[in-house]
Each structure stands twice: as C-alpha cells, then as structure tokens.
Design a protein around this nucleic acid. Structure first.
Length: 811
DNA sequence: GCTGAGTAACTTTTT
DNA sequence: GTTACTCAGC
C-alpha cells in the first residue's frame, strides 16, 4: 500500500529517466552466460516478445536476466517494470535472483508479484470505481461458498439438487472469462437451473455490501476499471513501461485482457511460457492465449528456448515422443548436450500395493547404489502421481518400511490463523516451554495483555531463565503485572497447568522434568480423552467464544475449521502424536532435517526437477484421467498428455514409469489397461524392467488374495505367481510390442505362450476364478475382454488374462 | 441443537 | 474405502 507513492509523481518519473541515463554505461557480464536463444530473448526489449521456453531450458534465468538488463542499460527503473507470476513462490524466486544478479538487495520492484497481489494493490487505489472501499476484504474459497449457500437458500432453491458448490464453479468460470453479471452469454444462461445469472448478480451485490471481493474479482474488477476508465488505464500504460509475464500458458481470459489492456499502448510485453506445459485448463487457463500471441501482437518476436539443461537425451526423447501426440502446438524440440544416461524405465505390476512396494524397494536400492547407477540421496527422488489419493499407497508402504518421505502441496488447512492459534494452545499444554506458542496465544482471545505486559513477561522469564509460562506466573506473583491483565494471566497459567494435568491423567508426558506436586495428577482429576481435552481447551480458554462473538463474515468458517481440527485428533492416540504429525506437515517447506523422498501430484511438480523420478499409476482411466476425457474430450486428453510431458521432464537422470493391472478405486477392485501414453513412448528410449514376481517365489503371490492361502499345491502357486505379471494386460501389451522389435525380453516366448492359452481357453458360461473378484461365470466375450458375472463382486468386464478356470483352484 | 447413522460422491489447485 | 454432508432421532 505504501508503494503507491511511486505513482503520480511526475518528478519521480523524470528523475527515473535521468538516473536511467546515468546507469547506461554499466557492464553486462550476465549476457555472456546466456546461450544465443536466451540472449536474443533478453536483448529484444522493445515490442512484443514471446519466449517459448521448454522444460528445463533456463527460462527463469532468461527472464531475470531480462529484468536485470533493463535496469543495467537504464531502460527502466525498478518500479516501471511490471512482472507477473502465478505463485508467490515464483515471485519470491524471481526477486531473489534479480537481487543476486544485481549484487545488491533490490530496492523497490513493487510490481513484481502475482496477478492477484498486484491487482489487490491496484484495486485498493481505485476501489471506489467499482463501488468498494479501499479496505475491502478478500474472501477465500470457504467464505465464498458460505455466502453462496446463503443466497441459494434465500432463493428457495433445493441445494441438494443444485449444490452451491456447483454455482461457485459456474461463477468462478465466468469470472475467469471476465464475464460480468450483465454480460452472461445466452449460451451460459441456462446453467444452474437457469438461475445462475440472477444469483451471480445477487452475489456480486452482496459482496459489494460486505465490501468484499473474491479471488476472481481482483482481476475482473481491474479489467472493468481499465475498460470503463480510460484515464486510469492510460496512467498505468504510461507507468508500466515494460511488462513481463511468467507461465503465460496458464493465463485465463481475465488475466489476458488485463495484460492486453496494459500493453496495448507501447506493446513492450514479454510473455514467457510453454504451450506443452499448460495443465491448468480446468481452472480457466486458456492455452489459446499463448497459441494466439502472434495474432494478438503482430510483429511479435518469437524466441524458442530449446536447449535443455536438465535431462538426459533418453528422457527428453521419451517426453518428446509423448507430446508429439498433441495437435495444437507451437512446436518445439528439446535437445541437450548431455550424455545418454539411463533409458526411461518401464515396469508393470499386479496391483497398486505391489507397485508401491516395488518403488519403495527400488528407492532403497538406488539409495544404496546397487542399481548400477551412482548412488542418490532420498532428496534426489520424487514420486509424482496424477491424483492425490494415489499418495496413500506410498505413504502406507513407506511408513511400514520406515522410508522417510514428505508430501508436497498438502493441505493448507494447518496454515489457517485459527488452526494455528488452536495448535498453539495444544502445543503449550503438551510442552509448556513452547514460548512461540505462548506468544501467539497470550492475548488471543483478548486478555488485556498488550505489548507492555508481554515485554514484562519476556524480561522476567529471561532474567530467571525460565519459560514464558513460568515467567508469566512469576510476573503475577511479583506484582509486575497488575489489574485486569494480572487476573487474566493468572487464569491462563493455572488453566494451562490444569489442562496439562488432564493429559497426564491419560497419557504420561515423556519429558518428566519439573513434576512438582502442583502438576502431578491429582486424585480425582478428570480423565478425558485427548479429543475431549482439545475441545475443553478451546472452550475454556475462551477461544471458541471469541469467534462466536466475532461478527465478520469469516468467523463461522473459522469455527467450522476448529471443529474439523478436533475431529482430526480422532485418528491419533494423543495430542503429542497429533502435534508431531502436523509439525511434519508444516515443516515440509522449511525443516529439512534428514533427506526424504518427495511425493506430490504432477500439478504440484511443475517447475521442479529431481535426479530420480517415479511416475506410477500410468493406467488408462487414472492417467489419462477418465473424468478429464469425459468432460473435455480431446482437449482433456491433450491436457493429460501435457501432464505426462511435465512428469517426464521433471526427471534429470532416471525416470521410471509404472502401472498396475489392478487397483482398488473407491473400494472396488478394478482392472485397467496401461496408459495409452505408454504406447507413445519411443521404444528405443525405453527399457522394460522385469517385475520381481517373475522369479517364481511366493512373494508376488503373497498379497494376492486370502482365498488361495491354504491347500494350494506348489505348482498352482507358481503359476499364480507368474499370472501376477505375465497375465497382466499391460505386460501382454508390452510383449506384443517387443515382438515387433528385435530387442526382446528374455521371457517373451514363455509369456506369449501363456497368452495364447489364456485367450483361447474360455467359453461362454464357463465358471471362472479371479484373484480379486472371486468366482463367477462368463456371460459375454468382447474382443480381449470377458464379461463375467461374479458371485460376490457383481458383473464386470475383465481381461481374459486375469481369469483362471475355476477348477484350477482346489478347495 | 447436537450427535449418530446413512448416503452420495469422489481429479488436478493458486490466489 | 473414505469422507463429507444430510437427515432423523434424542
């Protein structure tokens, strides 16, 4: 807010030009570190520039060099550069890198930030133009939904048939497309039982009454202001002499319009992006924006960054092979000077559990360096999944084998203010020495303990070498804190001690320091579960009450979150266990003690890189996601393919793709075919690994199904173990492919023999057995799939290879 | 009004 | 299988 002083000040503007000229003679050593393409992108400063930067081609380097170049050559002062990113993280990194390159802390690049943060700044200045006050509040998704629920209810709509969440989605979509309530296209008007347009208008009115905006509004309001107030627009067009946009392929229509309005005068806009990495279409991103750039800005200078500094040629070739399947592309071909390295490794498994088990073992083997590669640390490795529910299998497995891991991009729940407050109370009860926690809650809720009282507590605690809690007790005793505050503080201290006794009544604290008579569990001290205790703490501390009395629109949501927090305790034995768990989650960006394998979604992995990458779950339906294809058809499939491209290009040296023949989805076992993207991997860059179950041991068969554990002859067991892998559809497809090529797997002949057997051995009506579904009868045959009516699992379509004639299994 | 049971839904996520 | 949300019952 304070940075607005930079504006409107003609004097400052003139001064800027002057100082610019003074800077013009500075050397430009950073240019020598760039390759020709990067350098071209940096030096083309005037007019529109599209920097098509493939994965790992030094995009950020080029972008930051460009900023530095503008500053060093005196073309612009820091505040005259508008540089937008999507995430705070990206903005932070860019700031740091520019500062590092300049060799000095960067004073004032006030307009380097996310779309949203920049729009907040702008909107606070011009809020009145859209009927807001400059101190408007920003609603998060929860607040937004709650508001919409109220409106839906008030409109007498059955929110069971028409969930508010759906309406929220529609409105978000409109806002992403810069559609105001008056301009809802007729094609969209039928949404939400024809009531969406009216509810949208009501929602906007309500927001205005509350002096609030949602995330979408930040952009939308600014676009509206720029469109309706040419004078305002002109001011910024003049001020922002150069515009840079990161991840341009992720911009939505509103962001696009906003940029185009700002750039339309001088057209000094440089957009950086990669159409092949556009993976956010589902939240409004328009690949079209980047595809259309040259039409939007005629005469645009297009620079392709294609030299990759990240991955081996095999990995790049595999990624290229996949992305080639997309039609709407600007076209880039990554190349590298790196040595060949490992081929992309491909492996099929019987089911998801086995996949997790194999990856766990493989990670340990790679870590030990027993895979014929250089040894890697756990930090070097990452598992990238399509959907977050896939993470569970890995977490379960890694917990049992004690493999350290971290989940990236987990819930943001624990970052909320009220959750942090509540956690601070819990922490203080579990460990009274937690001074940070004490500081956080000492005056929350308000206890009349301001800065002064807190300083007193600090001083006394430090003087006596005790924790803040003890210091607070002393301060009261010594009469250093008086009046209302003293009473409240004394109450807090005794409450904390009392709650602590209640923990001890159930779970003894391990660090038994200072157990005096006061803190020892008293006879008849109430025995409560940690869940009840948590509730007691929140209630008796007055924290719950504080939010109940709060009239702001976010208060109900905060209370709901607190309820959720208490509920989250249910899956833990005690408060300590819970706190440790949460501490780990919260630590995942800072506390990096000890190397850990990273687990994250493909979306979360964008922009990251790892020497060793595992890409599990490459099965049709999961990846590419069935839903994506159903909802968005070919467009959806292409986005999934880009996701695959993003995944592969995260890998620097070793990339392992895997799939499972069977997976439990929503409690139901489903068999699946390997992802079509696997077919698109160029074979000369792929090495097919042999799954462990092949070696005949009972290991692979062990987890397969309870029904076969007893009384099975060893011959059958061996066959079942083979069936694990040989009979999986994915394996079969691999075999078919390797048959076409001279490079074949050692066991090919045996496998295909079994295949042939499997194909021909079933007839209509035959009684069959399936490892997961149990017994059933064949009621239909379609190509390589059989329709089977299972006794327990219902009718399913299964691939023949998963079935055995029922008399194979002796009972 | 709150708890318990039953049911429906169930990608991806930043701001 | 899990979770979140709704409805019924206390």
């Amino acid at each position: 807010m304070s940075t607005f002083d930079d504006f409107d000040d003609v004097g400052a503007f003139e001064a800027a030009s002057l100082s610019s000229r003074a800077m013009a003679a500075r050397p430009t050593p950073y240019l020598d570190e760039l390759n020709p393409a990067q350098r071209a992108a940096v030096e083309a400063m005037d007019g529109p520039v599209l920097m098509l930067a493939g994965a790992g081609t030094g995009k950020t380097k080029a972008l930051t060099s460009r900023i530095v170049h503008m500053l060093m050559t005196g073309r612009a002062r820091p505040p005259e550069i508008l540089a937008v990113t999507f995430t705070n993280k990206a903005a932070r990194e860019m700031k740091e890198r520019v500062a590092r390159m300049l060799g000095q802390p960067i004073e004032g690049m006030p307009w380097l930030g996310t779309f949203h943060s920049i729009c907040v700044k702008l909107l606070r200045r011009h809020a009145e133009l859209v009927g807001l006050k400059s101190n408007f509040t920003i609603l998060d998704t929860d607040d937004q939904l709650r508001l919409l629920k109220q409106l839906v209810q008030a409109a007498g709509i059955d929110d069971k048939r028409w969930p508010a969440r759906q309406l929220a989605g529609i409105i978000d979509d409109w806002k992403n497309r810069a559609i105001t309530p008056e301009r809802v296209p007729t094609a969209d008007a039928g949404a939400y039982n024809h009531k969406a347009p009216r509810l949208y208008a009501e929602y906007q009115t309500r927001l205005r009454e509350l002096n609030a905006v949602d995330f979408g509004d930040l952009l939308l309001h600014m676009v509206t202001i720029f469109q309706q107030h040419p004078d305002v627009l002109e001011q910024y067009q003049r001020w922002f002499r150069f515009i840079l946009v990161d991840e341009y392929q992720d911009t939505n229509v509103a962001q696009y319009l906003w940029l185009r309005l700002l750039a339309s005068a001088h057209k000094n806009i440089c957009c950086v992006g990669d159409d092949d990495q556009s993976i956010y279409g589902w939240r409004g991103a328009e690949v079209g924006n980047i595809l259309r750039f040259e039409k939007d800005f005629p005469g645009a200078h297009v620079v392709r960054l294609e030299q990759n500094y990240r991955s081996t040629p095999h990995i790049l070739a595999a990624a290229s092979g996949v992305i080639r399947g997309n039609s709407d592309r600007l076209g880039k071909e990554l190349w590298t000077e790196a040595q060949d390295g490992e081929k992309v490794r491909l492996i099929g498994h019987w089911d998801g559990e086995e996949e997790a088990r194999w990856i766990g073992e493989e990670i340990e083997a790679i870590q030990r360096g027993t895979r014929g590669m250089r040894p890697y640390t756990l930090d070097d490795m990452a598992i990238l999944v399509r959907a977050s529910h896939q993470m569970r299998a890995f977490e379960d497995r890694f917990l049992t084998i004690g493999l350290p891991y971290k989940v990236i991009g987990g819930p943001r729940f624990y970052e909320r203010l009220e959750i942090r407050d509540a956690m601070a109370y819990f922490r203080l009860v579990v460990s009274p020495d937690d001074d940070l926690a004490f500081e956080r809650i000492v005056n929350t809720p308000k206890r009349g303990l301001g800065d002064k009282a807190q300083q007193t507590i600090q001083r006394i605690a430090r003087a006596n070498g005790v924790s803040l809690v003890d210091g607070a007790a002393l301060a009261v005793e010594m009469g250093e804190i008086k009046g209302k505050g003293a009473k409240a503080l004394a109450q807090l201290v005794t409450d904390l001690a009392r709650w602590r006794r209640m923990t001890r009544a159930v779970v003894p604290v391990q660090s038994d320091d200072i157990i005096d008579d006061e803190t020892r569990p008293m006879e008849g001290s109430p025995e409560v579960s940690h869940i009840e205790l948590a509730q007691i703490i929140l209630d008796e501390s007055g924290y719950t009450e504080m939010w109940q009395n709060d009239k702001t629109p976010e208060a109900p949501g905060r209370l709901e979150n607190l309820k959720e927090l208490v509920k989250a305790l249910e899956s833990f034995e005690n408060l300590q266990g819970f706190l440790e768990h949460v501490a780990l989650i919260m630590d995942n960006d800072k506390g990096d003690e000890g190397a850990k394998v990273s687990i994250m979604t493909l979306h979360a992995a964008k922009g990251l890189e790892f020497p060793v990458v595992f890409l599990p779950g490459w099965e049709d339906g999961l990846f590419p996601s069935q839903r994506s294809m159903d909802e968005s058809g070919l467009k959806g499939l292409e986005e999934e393919r880009r996701l695959a491209y993003v995944g592969i290009t995260r890998a620097e040296e070793v990339c392992t793709i895997s799939f499972a023949g069977n997976r439990r989805i929503f409690g139901q076992w489903q068999s699946a075919l390997p992802s079509r993207f696997i077919d698109e991997l160029p074979e000369e860059h792929v090495e097919v690994l042999t799954p462990p179950g092949l070696y005949g041991g009972g290991y692979g068969a062990a987890g397969m199904g309870g029904g076969m554990s007893g009384g099975m002859s060893s011959g059958v067991e061996a066959r079942a173990a083979e069936a694990n892998v040989y009979n999986s559809p994915g394996w079969k497809r691999l075999q078919e492919r390797s048959q076409q090529r001279p490079i074949s797997q050692p066991r090919e002949s045996r496998a295909s023999a079994i295949d042939l057997e499997a194909v021909s051995s079933f007839t209509m009506g035959e009684r069959v057995f399936h490892q997961k579904f149990g017994y059933g009868a064949i009621i239909g045959i379609e190509g390589d799939k059989l329709e089977v009516a299972f006794e327990k699992a219902g009718t399913k379509k299964v691939v023949a290879r998963f079935l055995s004639a029922s008399d194979d299994i002796p009972f």
